[in-house]
């Protein structure tokens, strides 16, 4: 199957006072039609920057896409002019953001905000767009949708606003939706509802979904495939279940050990990853995780490991990935 979205060696830099910061350092991943792909990593790992680059929403300046390709249905999004990328935004790729509380314009009605993209991209009349907005609100589980169209964002709770955002992202029937930490700002019970809703809708409508998250729990339950990012690069990639059971990179192992799990004894301590993420302005020449890595060898500080297959459809960027994968080092 050919990829719907293919990011190749994307480099994004930000100008800072202390120098050029490499937020994305040769990031590559791909998404097939209808697939749910998770991008996991801690703050500053480059996962959001990569996602924003797809729609060219990086503020320039200070940001700059310095290299790479982003192929969507075969054409390079980075080569499009402003007019053409606007036709991709919302129409071909929908986006859901992290902060439902601040993602809706406070002075415009829900109806206006929902229908404007449909009228622009699908050429619907006002009445048709209103009707479709009502259907969409029903689909995302909002009661009394007709009256919600006239409501303003401050009338809705955070969970309802995120439902509205999902409805908006789906409104032009894009083949791909990118959700950037869609549930981080929500209560845990609402998180589960929203994720179930997104998964269910994407499966039903055949929409591919990229979920960007730092929550590994989400990954195991909702994603088909996972990309783990660290210091601006993808350091492990593979099927979600496989990575959860047999991680191939010490960083992924560390991430899994640092979250509570039901299959461990109660009261057993969580193991944090020691140290801090590297300074993206001056990356060391070797593996960026090496200073924090418990299994690093002398060579790790000198050379940068590339992604190597450890199993079918499973890659890891570690010189000792085979041993990590087999559990020989823990």
């Amino acid at each position: 199957m050919t990829a719907l979205l293919e990011i190749k060696d994307l480099v994004v830099e930000f100008a800072t006072e202390s120098g050029s910061l490499r937020a994305a350092n040769a990031v590559s991943y791909d998404v097939s039609p209808g697939e749910i792909v998770a991008v996991v990593g801690e703050s500053g790992s480059g996962k959001s920057v990569t996602a924003l680059s797809v729609l060219r929403l990086i503020p320039e300046p200070p940001g700059r896409i310095a290299g790479g390709e982003i192929l969507f249905q075969g054409s390079d999004l980075l080569a499009l002019d402003d007019e053409a990328i606007r036709r991709v935004r919302g129409k071909s790729i929908g986006m859901i953001f992290q902060e439902p509380m601040t993602s809706l314009n406070p002075v415009l009605s829900i109806g206006r905000q929902m229908t404007e993209a449909m009228r622009l991209h699908l050429g619907l009349s006002a009445a048709q767009a209103d009707q479709r907005a009502v259907d969409l609100l029903k689909m995302v589980g909002i009661a009394d949708p007709e009256s919600r169209l006239k409501a303003y964002p401050h009338h809705l709770s955070g969970g309802m606003r995120q439902r509205v955002m999902i409805a908006m992202a789906l409104s032009c029937e894009p083949p791909l939706i990118i959700a950037d930490e869609p549930t981080t700002a929500l209560d845990v019970t609402i998180q589960a509802q929203i994720l179930e809703l997104m998964k269910d809708l994407c499966r039903r409508l055949g929409v591919a979904l990229v979920i960007i998250t730092h929550n590994l729990g989400i990954v195991a339950r909702y994603a088909d495939r996972v990309n783990v990012m660290y210091a601006g690069s993808v350091i492990e990639r593979g099927p979600a279940q496989e990575i959860y059971r047999h991680p191939g990179h010490p960083y992924t192992v560390g991430l899994l050990n640092s979250v509570p799990r039901l299959d461990r004894p109660r009261g057993s301590p969580l193991e944090p990853i020691p140290g801090n993420p590297p300074d993206l302005v001056s990356l060391p020449p070797g593996c960026p995780f090496q200073p924090r890595c418990g299994v690093a060898t002398a060579g790790c500080a000198d050379a940068l490991p590339g992604l190597e297959a450890v199993a079918a459809q499973h890659w890891s960027a570690c010189f000792r990935s085979r041993q990590v994968y087999e559990g020989a080092l823990t």
Binding site: V88, F97, A117, L120
Partner: peptide, 11 residues
């Protein structure tokens, strides 16, 4: 944030 959302709609 809402301006970024609006931009992401292709307006």
């Amino acid at each position: 944030d809402y301006m970024r959302v609006a931009r992401a709609k292709g307006l």
